[in-house]
Amino acid sequence: MRKTTYDIAVVGAGCAGYQLLYQLAQQPAWSSWRVLLLSDGVPLQRSWCFWGTDDHPLQHLVTKSWTDIEFQSPDFGQTQPIAPYTYHYIAGEAFFRYFEKTFLPANPNIQVVQAEVRELTQANRQFTLVTEDATFWAKQVFSSRHQTPVRPGRWNLSQHFRGWFVRTETPVFREHVATLMDFRVPQQDAVQFAYVLPFSDNEALIEITAFSRAMAYTTVRYDDMLADYISRRYPGVMFSVESTEQGQIPMTDYPFTRFGPAGEMLLGTAAGMVKATTGYAFRRIGHDCTQLANAYGNTQPADWPITTGRFRFYDRLLLGILTEQPGMGLNVFSRLYRYTSFRQILQFLDEESSLLAEVSMISRLPYVPFLSQLVKQWKH
């Protein structure tokens, strides 16, 4: 039996794996590469959001965009335009339909195998990938398999959420305004807020999101919170739930590495591309995949967009506060949105702000929990 060695094997047909394949396909030598895509066949029931000042490479998959952002708390609320940024939404269904029905058939050099990788090793500059029914070989492996570290970071929270796609009988939503945080929900033992993305004046995705040590709530708990929030924010409005989405995202200060145990190149969550204090990852993953593809195609060196330096320091401070004092979350975010323009907040979250702007922003936040956390982390 003839042994086939692939030039590239991609483990994981999700957000990172597909974005990497898309960027690899832009390389001059793409058609000459033999590519293996290994998928466990488990679909993700979620969508992705990101903001930007220019078009994303997958802009054609954007379902809806918003020019204004809203923040609400029990004693403060504000809506602001975010130009030059625009906030975008890509539906999971649209994302996977494009790659499975359009992209893969248009690239016959990709062989798709529905199988879970049981073992991955490297010897003599060649990788061996073992599944339940077969063995494959590749010169390079990119993997988005995320495994919980044996020794996790000091601060480890879970951002978990459940949302309803609703349709109302009467128009109630402002179609151009996305509500990123509405803290007018019970805080209990975690940082909890509602998230509203209107697709029209009577259609929207409404989610309950929590930052907590618990991995997730029961479906009943999410649904009770969603029903209560909708009844209070849109009293008397009749609505139907068309579909749902649910998921969870790690929020950790774990020092991620670029390579896995066998020397494979890690992608997405496994490579630390999730912003530790927000859970946003789509744009960071896209940038990383572009860099990796260009480096593999020898068109330019890679620039790993992992959080480092002072931004990692900021993330650790906030993670420490949200872990040890979740009740402070409402106060921290309320003061942040009250005293800082939303455009500046997005620039800060993109890690593109100036040190002077950061000092000005942080000086307006409640200083006691940050100083306390600073002392604890310095001692640690």
Rank of each mutant, 00 (worst) to 15 (best):
M1W: 08
M1N: 11
K3E: 15
T4P: 01
T5L: 05
A13P: 02
A13Y: 10
C15E: 14
Q19P: 06
Q26A: 13
S32Y: 07
S32L: 05
W33D: 09
R34V: 03
R34F: 04
L37K: 14
L37P: 12
L38F: 08
R46C: 06
W48G: 05
L61F: 07
S65K: 14
D75E: 09
Q78A: 01
Y87K: 02
Y89T: 04
I90E: 06
G92A: 12
A94H: 15
E100F: 10
P105F: 03
A106L: 02
P108E: 04
Q111T: 15
A115D: 14
E119R: 14
N124F: 11
Q126G: 06
F127G: 10
T128I: 13
D133C: 08
T135P: 02
F136V: 11
W137E: 13
Q140F: 04
R145E: 14
Q147T: 15
L157Y: 06
R162K: 14
R162L: 11
T168H: 07
T170V: 15
R174D: 13
Q188C: 08
D189Q: 12
Q192P: 00
V196W: 00
I206G: 05
T209Y: 01
T209W: 01
F211T: 02
M215N: 12
D223S: 06
L226K: 00
S243N: 13
G247E: 13
P261E: 14
M265P: 02
L266T: 14
G272T: 10
T278W: 03
L292I: 14
N294W: 08
A302T: 11
A302W: 05
G309R: 12
G320R: 11
I321W: 06
P326H: 01
R335G: 00
R343I: 02
Q344S: 13
Q344G: 02
F348I: 09
L355D: 13
L356V: 15
E358I: 03
M361Q: 08
I362K: 03
L365T: 07
L365K: 09
P369H: 04
L371R: 03
Q373Y: 04
L374N: 01
W378F: 09
